[in-house]
Amino acid sequence: MNDPGYELLLWVRGPGWILALAVFSFGMAMRLFEIFALGRREDLAPPRPAERQGSPMRTVWNRFFPVPGLFERAPATHVSGYLFHIGFFAVLFFAEFHIQLFRHLLGFGWPALSAPLADALGVVAIVALLAALVSRMRDPVKRFLSTAGDYLAWALTFLPLLTGWMAYHHVLVSYTRMVALHLLAAELLLALLPFTKLIHAVTIFVARWYTGEQFGRKGVQA
């Protein structure tokens, strides 16, 4: 057992995982506290009658889709964004290996995607994320807005996808070592999620609700 990949695997499966989970939990709790401790003032303007108000929950759902005309103005952003998210979450929650892990952690599992389909969706996510990177570097608006944080978040998301695909296909290094690297990448993503823009995975639902409520009380479905 001199394979250094095996030692790394032991670490990422034990202390590494615990550490990542701890940092994630602490970070998320802290960030959410930072946000919710601020509070907000009651809106004293009388809202529209209930039947005329827009629904904040509908806003939460609606914002998964572009307002008419927006897609045409930014097709690359939309296509890469949709494909990445669909591929990423499909593989994360429905690849056989991941379900085994969830079964181990939670005590129950669910049906998996067929291996070729999960593989294909992983590739879709990888290609979409690469396209998103190219688009970020070439599109005048996105290039202008982008900071180191955007590229860090991109790398944090890309590495688990890439290493997962490489482990599955036994590319470059031993399977053991690649699985260890994959777990390490996933743990990095988990640990740093609360401290990067990746926190949007949680906060957008709150943001949509607030905006939906503000528009809604005026009688506009946002």
Partner: peptide
């Protein structure tokens, strides 16, 4: 502010 991903839309 926490939710912005710099998508540029």
């Amino acid at each position: 502010f926490a939710s912005c991903v710099h998508c540029g839309l």
